[in-house]
């Protein structure tokens, strides 16, 4: 599928081997095209730091409330507001994160500031939260940590303008304010979420070869599916156990199951999404293995006790003599 992707060829069927200069021209034109579209976009919308330079129009000075931002940007950049309102940030009322949360309450440095990871980390649990930590220990996170001081943060979030992606580079790629577009909403189910992968695939290809990205995504999906299998296996056992034992007897096992689904499976997802081998593995799959076997152990112990105490229990076997 994406193996066939190649703008040099795909754009007009130009044979790459025969006519390099034409292909090169295409590639340059294409980049120029993207930049032109972006410039036009920022010109008309008034969003982004470069807009004012292009339009020779300074953004209004002073402090603004979130209501002020929306009133004005509803006119100047309606798409941006719409995208934000579709996202987990802007969907609820009041919004979880609004313009001021990430951009501050003045236009001064508003864009640059919001592109830095720090604005995200403050709300997303801090440095030790798996969401943040899985990224921070990835190669992307490491490169960013070491080099971010030297980067020009006024660059738009596209075209590999940054050597490694920060939170915003991927989740607000090309300034798309629907941060949820590339995030799975339901960790247990894949249906209707193909577009999520597509959104992110496009981002990765700023730097990585199309086939590499495809293979990585397929592998990540398979890895996540195996995690789901473990959770479903545990869920099935627990469902059966609920018909046999009281909620009090199952308290510890229920708690473990909740942690399995909400923490350890999520770690696999974060490990895949943020490319952290440690979250895919040690915080992910072996942790799920431990949950599964301990859930089995917990239910098994109750079953043993019942056989010992209840002489009428039917699920018994002779002592193996071992």
């Amino acid at each position: 599928m994406l193996d066939g992707y190649d703008p040099c060829v795909a754009s007009d069927g130009l044979s790459r081997g025969k006519n390099l200069s034409a292909a090169r021209a295409m590639s340059i034109l294409q980049r120029a095209g993207v930049n032109a579209v972006f410039m036009l976009l920022v010109f008309f919308t008034g969003a982004g730091g470069t807009a004012w330079a292009a339009g020779d129009d300074q953004p209004p000075a002073g402090e603004f409330s979130n209501g002020d931002c929306i009133r004005c940007h509803r006119k100047t950049s309606p798409d941006l507001i719409d995208a934000w309102q579709q996202s987990a940030h802007g969907k609820s009322k009041p919004a979880v994160a609004n313009c001021v949360t990430c951009h501050g309450n003045t236009h001064q440095g508003a864009t640059k500031k919001a592109r830095r990871n720090s604005v995200c980390i403050d709300c997303h649990g801090g440095e030790k939260d798996p969401v943040v930590h899985s990224y921070a220990t990835s190669k992307h996170g490491i490169i960013l940590r070491l080099e971010q001081k030297e980067w020009d943060w006024s660059q738009p979030l596209e075209q590999a303008n940054y050597r490694a992606p920060g939170c915003a580079y991927c989740h607000l790629h090309q300034g798309n304010h629907n941060v949820s577009a590339g995030v799975r909403q339901d960790i247990m189910h894949t249906t209707k979420q193909e577009d999520v992968a597509e959104v992110m695939r496009a981002v990765c290809q700023d730097c990585h070869a199309p086939r590499y990205v495809t293979r990585l995504f397929e592998n990540g999906e398979a890895m996540l599916n195996i995690g789901r299998m473990k959770v479903r296996e545990a869920a099935g056992l627990l469902q059966q156990a609920r018909t046999e034992f009281s909620p009090e007897e199952l308290t510890a096992t229920e708690q473990r199951f909740n942690k399995m689904r909400s923490h350890h499976l999520k770690n696999v997802l974060l490990g895949v999404g943020h490319q952290s081998p440690d979250y895919q593995w040690w915080h992910g799959h072996p942790a799920l293995d431990g949950d599964l076997l301990r859930i089995k152990g917990g239910i098994g112990e109750l079953k043993r006790l019942r056989v010992i105490t209840d002489k009428t229990a039917d699920e018994v076997v002779r002592q193996t003599g071992r």
């Binding site: 190649d6 703008p7 040099c8 790459r16 390099l20 292909a23 090169r24 295409m26 590639s27 340059i28 294409q30 980049r31 075209q159 590999a160 050597r163 290809q205 700023d206 730097c207 990585h208 070869a209 199309p210």
Partner: peptide, 9 residues
């Protein structure tokens, strides 16, 4: 020349 377009990073 080509990869500047395909994978600029």
């Amino acid at each position: 020349a080509c990869h500047e377009g395909v994978t600029p990073g």
